[in-house]
């Protein structure tokens, strides 16, 4: 049985009195490619952001490599820095790629990648640059190391974002609708990158609408609706034979085009 990388237990999250996640359980094993689908605005992004604690769940456990990180130290302790190292460990071992890239506009692509290495992992400037160049090469942007983000296309920006996360050598990669903001002709390049990653054995959780990707690369499919997992299972099976009505409705709507 492959190693359990991530386990979410009974995750609940509300914004004010609006409940977004209503008890979500999810287990992700090494080399899994979990694809999360579902209607917009019903918790997919929030769930993803609970994993690296960009959002704190109101209750539940976020167990990464056997340790629960959704533990809030009291205010006093946090002021003295406790919990900070834990958070740092979590975030430097989980990579995240955003829908709107969020590249740092005042830094070159190379510097975008080295920032995390130098500041969070305390790696020396030279070693950081070496690793960054490697990753940028692997996503096919080796010639753009000194370019600024505003000179790049959307697809290129997203690939830099991927490189920026990969350079930290994460155990888990999170993708939050990373192709939704791209022009159609640029989507393919990014998806190809993600496919390559999966084939190299990266554990991935992908929120997307790209069913083709799910079918080709995904290992498990999760259908999230109204803050709960309605159905989950192997990609192939779920896509061809969804059991639940809501799943069927959603899939037929989304597969129409």
């Amino acid at each position: 049985m492959a190693e359990e990388i991530l386990k979410l237990v009974e995750i609940r999250k509300s914004f004010g009195d609006h409940a977004v996640l209503n008890g979500v359980d999810l287990t992700v094993h090494r080399q899994d490619v979990v694809v999360i689908i579902g209607p917009s605005g019903q918790g997919k992004s929030t769930l993803l952001r609970c994993i690296n604690l960009l959002e704190w769940p109101n209750s539940g456990q976020v167990v990464f490599l056997g340790k629960d990180y959704a533990v809030r130290y009291p205010w006093i302790e946090r002021l003295r820095g406790r919990g900070g190292e834990d958070l740092r460990y979590l975030r430097t071992h989980i990579g995240m790629v955003f829908q709107h890239f969020n590249l740092f506009p005042h830094l070159t692509t190379l510097q975008n990648c080295t920032l995390g290495l130098e500041q969070s992992l305390k790696i020396s400037r030279d070693l950081a640059e070496q690793k960054a160049r490697e990753q940028l090469d692997r996503v096919g942007l080796g010639d753009k190391v000194n370019a600024y983000p505003d000179t790049l296309s959307g697809g290129q920006k997203q690939r830099v974002a991927i490189a920026r996360s990969l350079v930290m050598e994460p155990k888990l990669m999170l993708f939050d609708e990373v192709t939704s903001a791209l022009d159609p002709e640029l989507i393919g390049g990014v998806l190809a990158e993600m496919k390559r990653l999966a084939e190299e054995g990266m554990t991935m959780i992908v929120v997307t609408h790209e069913m083709g990707f799910a079918r080709e690369v995904g290992s498990r499919l999760v259908f999230l609706c109204e803050g709960q997992i309605v159905e989950e299972g192997p990609c192939e099976e779920l896509l061809s034979h969804p059991q639940e009505i809501r799943t069927q409705q959603f899939l037929s709507a989304i597969l129409k085009h």
């Binding site: 952001r49 690296n52 960009l54 900070g84 958070l87 740092r88 975030r91 430097t92 989980i94 990579g95 995240m96 955003f98 709107h100 890239f101 969020n102 590249l103 740092f104 506009p105 005042h106 920032l115 995390g116 500041q119 969070s120 992992l121 920026r164 996360s165 930290m168």
Partner: peptide, 30 residues
């Protein structure tokens, strides 16, 4: 400064101080 900048910085493990020093303030200055 876009909210996403704070998130991206947090996602690569920067502390608040590092985030402001290396990501937010340089952009504000410009």
């Amino acid at each position: 400064v876009d909210r996403g900048q704070y998130e991206a910085g947090a996602a690569i493990g920067l502390t608040t101080a590092q985030l402001y020093r290396k990501v937010v303030l340089p952009q504000v200055v410009r």
